[in-house]
């Protein structure tokens, strides 16, 4: 399977679907990661701690990187599936931590 995939060169086909996956699911993934990091480092909802203020700068660049690298997926379908799975695990971890810590 992997060998076949490597033989076919990447091209611009499906660029819109891949970019949309990066745009939509990338945003969700970046904010989910921010949420997990915030819980880990005890950032507060009143934005008083420095962690909350530092984390504010985190999702923007991460989102940009995710959109930029979404073109590396083999197909739009793969982009949506992989990013959805990543989102699922990150958000599951977030709600788990949130439940444990609240």
């Amino acid at each position: 399977m992997k060998d076949i995939a490597q033989q076919k060169p990447l091209d611009g086909a499906g660029w819109f679907g891949k970019a949309m996956a990066g745009l939509v699911l990338g945003a969700a993934l970046a904010t989910g990661l921010m949420g997990v990091l915030g819980l880990f480092f005890h950032a507060d909802a009143q934005l008083k701690t420095v962690t909350s203020q530092l984390l504010r700068w985190f999702p923007g660049p991460v989102w940009g990187l995710l959109v930029a690298f979404s073109f590396l997926f083999r197909s739009p379908r793969q982009a949506w599936v992989v990013l959805a799975l990543l989102n699922g695990s990150v958000w599951a971890l977030f709600f788990l931590l949130h439940g444990l810590m609240a």
Partner: peptide, 13 residues
């Protein structure tokens, strides 16, 4: 993002 932080993070101790 600031609005999101307010919903995602826990209130300050």
């Amino acid at each position: 993002i600031m609005a999101l932080e307010k919903t995602l993070f826990l209130p300050a101790a």
